[in-house]
Design a binder for these strands. Sequence first.
DNA 1: TTATGTGGGACGGATAACGTCCAGCAGATA
DNA 2: TATCTGCTGGACGTTATCCGTCCCACATAA
Lengths: 341, 341
Amino acid sequence: MGSLLELQKQLLPELMDVMKKRYTILHHIKLNGTVGRRTLAHSVHMTERMLRSEVDILKQQGLLDTNSSGMHISIAGEELLEGLEPYIRELFDLTDLAERIRSHFGLKEVIIVPGNSDDSILAKKELGRAGAAALRKVVQPNDVIAVAGGSTMAGIADSLIASAAFRGTWFLPARGGLGEHVELQANSIASTMAKRTGGQYRLLHVPDHLSEEAYQSLIQEPNIRELIAIIRKARIVVHGIGDAMVMATRRNVDVSVKDSLAQEGALAEAFGYYFDNSGSVVHNIPTVGLRLEDIRETELVIGVAGGRSKGEAIAAVLRFGHEDILVTDEAAAEQILNYLS
Amino acid sequence: MGSLLELQKQLLPELMDVMKKRYTILHHIKLNGTVGRRTLAHSVHMTERMLRSEVDILKQQGLLDTNSSGMHISIAGEELLEGLEPYIRELFDLTDLAERIRSHFGLKEVIIVPGNSDDSILAKKELGRAGAAALRKVVQPNDVIAVAGGSTMAGIADSLIASAAFRGTWFLPARGGLGEHVELQANSIASTMAKRTGGQYRLLHVPDHLSEEAYQSLIQEPNIRELIAIIRKARIVVHGIGDAMVMATRRNVDVSVKDSLAQEGALAEAFGYYFDNSGSVVHNIPTVGLRLEDIRETELVIGVAGGRSKGEAIAAVLRFGHEDILVTDEAAAEQILNYLS
DNA sequence: TTATGTGGGACGGATAACGTCCAGCAGATA
DNA sequence: TATCTGCTGGACGTTATCCGTCCCACATAA
């Protein structure tokens, strides 16, 4: 905290992207010596026109020159790159981490916020904000969003704000009661999210520890059946990721179940399922709502989790292979990459 | 040189403005405690809608909160302002200087670049670039621009670049030969500017040290008369400002003239006229082109000059009272303000 | 010569920004 | 309690800007 760049990331988030873009362009030009617009556009993954706008500015700033054989960096441009070097790492580190995780697991997008949610409540809040921003970015009118429980999900809910984007959105709990504290249950979170954004919600009240008969008769109830059907067709699923044993304890599962989880190598928990380190499901808590086959069909699965201690668990869930967007923090991201090598 | 802000000014010129704007908004909100959009818009001199866009971003960044009684700063916002404090001075100093000069002399705009052109060739180049940018900003299609001579004007010419904005622009020398080196004469500069921007130019060849008869017959020449008529109707005049004695020496004026200049308290020189410290004209070099009465009629007079040593001269010309835009550097600006108090 | 690259100009359509107006709400005031 | 004022947030049409697209003149190499 406290460096100018950190402050600017808060005050001017969009300009940091511009800064990266211009730096990248100038850097490429320096490396290539003399290079043409079309060639350069291809190598920095921009359209020719967008590159051109940026190049015009850089030229006007005297950072590069052009002649009929292409663009080349000016002395002022070289000095600028040199001076910028110590800051650039800070600017790019996270996006670099994100790209490595993204490509390794074949995700659509990976967002990494600075810090470690384990130590810092600020980083945890930042994670919530990033999760909220990611959700806001992908939501479409009249979407159905299934949300899981957990403290991270609660953090996202707290960072959501009312917006026209959420007009008519339905927030539904991904699964029934899973034995957590009431404010961390999916039901509460769905309701909070709906209230904060101006969307709508419905609750899925399935008490814990039901007898098999009671359970069977409950899920035959027409209104519950109907709600479950809607949940299973959610376009977006948002969920946290937990350590398997921590979650089992928090949910007061039977000792026998915990033993079997341990034996089967359960590492991670997400939306009520337990995963081992290969990403295979080793156990699931019997309740109603989203099933694994629904997750496989879901258009957008957004996982949000941070903290160094969660790295292994996140990696396990990513190996499961049905995540689309991951929102995490720096510490967890580093840990994830450690587990890969 | 080398501070991150200095580097960012080069790479992201627009960053400074956005940063100032958002800082100002947040700062005002902090000072007011809770304040409404309209009230705030008025006190930071923005339209309500523009303010709203900025506020939405700040809100999304968690730097301020809103409720039905107005906006107030969040804890994160307060921390940000605190962290930003050491940088803000660097950010605002120059604009603050500029505003004081602008309002004191009733100018349209004052642009100040960092540094001192007397010591640093880099500052001099920066002055040229700023002058070119200022010109580019105000030029309109088919404009007639009268340009004076001098090294600063040459610096502007070197920083101009081709642009559709200069399509059809005419660059003309403000006055005939004034005894300087050829590359610093208005004629050369007009031609350079035209060539670099893609505009057009015409030259006014009036040899120095003509006899009165030759002079009279020369200015009766039809093509010269016509050109002079165009020059006198220029919408824009761009000129440097020099120290009176330095300019007199450089132009090899007679010793008798220099003596009378000294006696009359000549301090500054601009477009061939000499000014004393009250801004009155005490002498002018006999050549053809723009006259004082033309300057008074000109829509936009742009003065460009920098360096601590020029402060007094600039102040004198500003007192003359017909400048619209001043482009100078930090050292000269400080000096100008010294002369006011 | 031809082929392929270059920067720069031109222009229309998409898109974001902005001015403007209004609804709904909360707290203050009469 | 009723009224009023100032607040936010939504809506919408207009404007300005950005960007995709196409073209041209020119330089260079084959």
